[in-house]
Computed example of a mutant assay.
Amino acid sequence: MAKATYDEALRRLLVHEGGYSNHPSDPGGPTKYGITIFDYRKYIDARGSAADVRAMTVDQAKAIYRVRYWDAQRCDELPPGVDYAVFDYGVNSGIGRSGRVLRRLLGLSADGHAVTDAAIAAAAARDPAGLVQAICDERLRFLKALRTWPVFGAGWGRRVADVRRVGLRMAAGAPAPGRRRRGGAIAAGGAAAAGAAEAARQGGVPVEAILVAAGTVAAVALVAGAIWLIRRRRARRAVAGKAIAPEALAGQGG
């Protein structure tokens, strides 16, 4: 669903992160393309030096971003716009924080930061634009509370504003909450069940009761899909038997 946004998200991220820097007030130390020396030592070379960070290629940085930030936060499964907001937040402040913030905004336990099946289901049920706004609002509050805000605040503020603007544009093209392509109906039902189960565990509601409701949603989706297939097959048989005006097929779901 969200794969189409990755290239733009990465391109914009690299613009914000820029080239090599080693600002004395930056706790990340030597950094290039947003990859700190600590990330370099963790993912590329445990003995990496500042010179190695300076010599790092953009392809090395992209590989780290894809696996350690985008994939680690399951951004391909998040709604467009939300994926970008979570991705950029994770790079800037760590996936531990971005994951906990996302879970908290979705009403899930923030004890951990993992983007679970329940988080994916809950995000799919939310208005993506509203979720982008909430993520950016929380992110800006967090940054303003840091002691380094007076040094980096202007740039951080512009970055969050840009993520908000682009994220909202991406979200504007996303499907309405709860609506997906016909082929995704079964998967959506399964994700809803997972989200309901976690919500039940956290809220004290009997899991069985919530799962019954989720199962009903999945069943309705399956019936609707079956009806659509039957109508489509009937229309195709009719076309095979004789010529039918295009307007006669209107409303057949094709």
Rank of each mutant, 00 (worst) to 15 (best):
P206M: 06
P175V: 08
A213F: 05
R182W: 07
V223Q: 14
P177S: 06
K144M: 06
K144P: 01
E208T: 11
V160L: 02
T148N: 03
A176Y: 00
A171Q: 04
L229G: 10
G190H: 14
R180C: 08
A188W: 10
G190V: 12
A121V: 05
G190P: 00
R165W: 01
R181Y: 08
A172V: 07
A218P: 02
G215W: 11
P206C: 03
E208H: 10
E138H: 13
V163F: 02
G215S: 15
R164A: 02
Q202C: 10
G204V: 09
D162A: 15
D137E: 13
R139F: 00
A221Q: 11
W228M: 13
A193C: 06
G184C: 07
I210F: 05
A125Q: 15
A172I: 04
P175S: 04
A199I: 12
A145W: 01
F152V: 02
A119C: 04
R159L: 02
W228E: 14
G130N: 04
V223G: 07
W149I: 01
W156G: 00
V223D: 08
I227E: 15
W228Y: 10
A199Q: 13
R159F: 02
E198A: 15
A125L: 12
A154W: 00
V166I: 10
P128K: 09
T216V: 10
A185S: 14
I210H: 07
G184R: 10
A114G: 04
A145P: 04
P128W: 04
D117C: 02
G130R: 09
G184H: 10
A219V: 10
A125Y: 06
G203Q: 12
A119K: 01
A188K: 11
R141Y: 00
P206A: 05
A213R: 13
R231Q: 13
W149Q: 01
D111Y: 00
R201P: 05
Q202W: 13
G184K: 13
E198M: 13
G215I: 13
A226V: 11
G183S: 14
K144Y: 02
V160N: 01
V151D: 06
A154L: 13
A226R: 15
G225A: 14
A122N: 12
D137S: 07
A213C: 01
I186N: 08
P150F: 06
P175C: 03
V132S: 03
R158G: 03
A193D: 05
R201E: 11
R147I: 08
V151N: 07
A125P: 03
A214Y: 07
A145K: 04
G157L: 04
G203V: 03
A191E: 06
G195R: 13
A192K: 07
A171H: 11
H113W: 14
H113K: 12
R139C: 00
A161G: 12
D162V: 07
A221W: 03
A114F: 09
H113S: 15
G225T: 09
E208S: 10
G167V: 03
E208M: 07
E208G: 11
V166W: 06
V166K: 03
A194K: 14
R126I: 11
V115H: 06
R180N: 05
P150K: 07
W228H: 12
A193I: 05
H113V: 04
Q202S: 14
K144L: 02
G195N: 12
P175W: 06
V132M: 00
R180Q: 10
A110R: 08
T116D: 12
V207T: 14
Q202N: 13
R139T: 14
D117M: 09
